[in-house]
């Protein structure tokens, strides 16, 4: 498997707080990579550096490189909007726009210039099918998306992200606000999606990392402590701190 993203000596500061310290990592294509660690360890922050969502916070300062397909995404020549189209994001709390289900999905394609009704219809249906929610919503595409349940809203957000045909999907604790049934649906969906997409998921839930991910990275206090195949990391961690965390000694 070839690597699709690489971070080199990445440092990040919130004003004076050093939130990420010399992070080096490579993320393989068409696989699920999980980031685990206690609250405040920098895993979500790191996830957001991968599609430059941290740009929206004025006090953030970043040094080092994040390469996507060999190109440093923090280079001044990079079109951030195009980057975020290729590297999509699903947030912790489902955040559908207050519009119809159809318009939610069509928002991305419309943003990138697709106007034809036929084409939009096609993309909406395909994205909803890929997110395994088509059968539940096909009869109410014109209804407001805020009327759906939390789990449905989150799958809608995944469908919305898929509609712009990204290469990578970043998921920031996508199931932390959901019930167990919705959670397992999203996990199944993630496993299904890794056939065509690269998925990076931040999770609080170690069982979730074990269940779905191929590789796991353990963060602590802004440092990447250990990174490797999920099975190996959980059965034979090399670092004492990793072992302490996964055996539940802190966190």
């Amino acid at each position: 498997m070839s690597d699709i993203m690489t971070a080199k000596d990445l440092n990040l500061w919130y004003d004076k707080t050093h939130a990420l310290k010399n992070v080096n990592i490579t993320i393989p294509e068409k696989s699920i990579t999980a980031f685990i660690g206690p609250s405040g360890c920098g895993k979500s922050t790191f996830l957001k550096t991968l599609n430059r969502m941290n740009d929206l916070i004025p006090i953030v300062k970043i040094t080092g490189e994040v390469c996507y397909n060999g190109q440093n995404i923090y280079d001044s020549s990079v079109d951030v909007n195009e980057l975020r189209r290729e590297i999509g994001m699903v947030f912790q709390k489902p955040n559908p726009f207050p519009m119809s289900i159809y318009d939610n999905i069509a928002y991305g394609p419309r943003t990138h210039g697709i106007k034809s009704k036929v084409k939009l219809d096609e993309i909406v249906e395909q994205s909803l099918r890929d997110a395994a929610i088509w059968d539940e919503v096909k009869d109410r595409l014109k209804k407001n998306a805020l009327g759906m349940s939390g789990g449905q809203q989150q799958r809608l957000c995944i469908a919305r992200a898929l509609a712009v045909k990204p290469k990578i999907l970043l998921m920031d604790e996508p199931t932390s606000a959901l019930d167990p049934i919705s959670t397992s649906r999203i996990e199944e969906l993630a496993i299904e999606l890794k056939k065509s997409y690269t998925i990076v998921i931040v999770t609080h839930n170690m069982q979730q990392a074990v269940r779905i991910s191929d590789n796991t990275a353990f963060f602590l206090l802004g440092e990447l402590i250990e990174y490797g195949e999920t099975e190996k990391l959980f059965s034979q961690p090399t670092d004492k701190r990793t072992e302490d965390y996964i055996t539940g000694r802190f966190g």
Binding site: N51, L56, L83, R84, R85, G88, N95, F97, V164
Partner: peptide
């Protein structure tokens, strides 16, 4: 809500859009 803005930015929409 900020989450609406984040959602739209995450899809590659520019600031004005």
């Amino acid at each position: 809500p900020q989450s609406y803005r984040d959602g739209a930015f995450g899809l590659g929409a520019g600031k004005w859009r």
